[in-house]
Design a protein around this nucleic acid. Structure first.
Lengths: 135, 135
DNA sequence: GTGCTTGCAAACGTTTTGCAGACTC
DNA sequence: GAGTCTGCAAAACGTTTGCAAGCAC
């Protein structure tokens, strides 16, 4: 958290109140947050922080490699600390989001690399399907 | 093509000119088409078919299981005949879309099923990464 | 003081919807 | 004739941008 602000400063950025509160909420969040949900959480502490400021900060933080966004379905993107990123399975029946351990993708990664020369990063878009409860 | 129109009729739908031309273009298309690209192709034969009509028909055809849509990246969704659906790898460097043979996903499918009870359908969202040319 | 950052409002690209008329069966 | 389908315009949605004022350094 302080490391991040130091990095921001090192790149010529400023440690503004908005930036600080946005980072606090990101570090505290347990789930992925949409930009709108993050804005609401931030506004509980700093009511004047605008949704567009949240979007701009998320973009900056992604450029610095601190935050990543993921598409879990058809709604808004969700944001999280890059250090916590992982792949997801989304149930088309009930919408449940299941965390997918990275090791499940080892075989696919190897085959994609060998046969197509392609290095996968399975974390950006979720993989759809059906969970145990939805047949 | 005629089978599809028969199915549409069997469900109480009508075989309108728009529907016919949209289906023709879908059967003729080699690539995935965005709704807008499909509308343009349709309008070459039937100039008055509106983009919203294309969207409505695509939705109906998806409900019937004839068409599926896929998200290849951050732009518009792409549509294709369900019978031609497959997974994709998208290069974050150059944007290239590479078809991913289904057998690459066998191992992942088995592990997801055994360990999480989840049946994957890897075709709805593309998997990002980097192609051979983009390191 | 320099120049990054902000709030606001307005635009964006994609998709959906309300409506009155037109068409298929 | 009943009910589906259409074109059009307008709205909806998530996100981005232009601008002038405000703040960090």
């Amino acid at each position: 958290m302080d490391d991040v602000l130091a990095l921001v400063r090192a790149r010529g950025g400023r440690a503004t109140v908005s930036r600080r509160v946005i980072l606090e909420e990101l570090f505290e969040a347990e789930d992925h947050l949409s930009a709108e949900a993050l804005a609401e959480a931030v506004q509980a502490h700093a009511p004047d922080v605008h949704l567009s400021t949240v979007y701009r900060n998320l973009e900056d933080l992604q450029r610095l490699g601190i935050v990543v966004h993921t598409h879990l379905g058809h709604g808004p993107a969700t944001y999280q600390l890059a250090s916590l990123a992982h792949a997801h399975f989304i149930c088309e029946g009930c919408g449940a989001a299941i965390e997918a351990p990275d090791e499940l993708f080892r075989g696919l990664a190897r085959m994609a690399k060998n046969r197509l020369g392609f290095s996968i990063d399975p974390r950006h878009f979720a993989i759809l399907g059906r969970c145990a409860d939805c047949v």
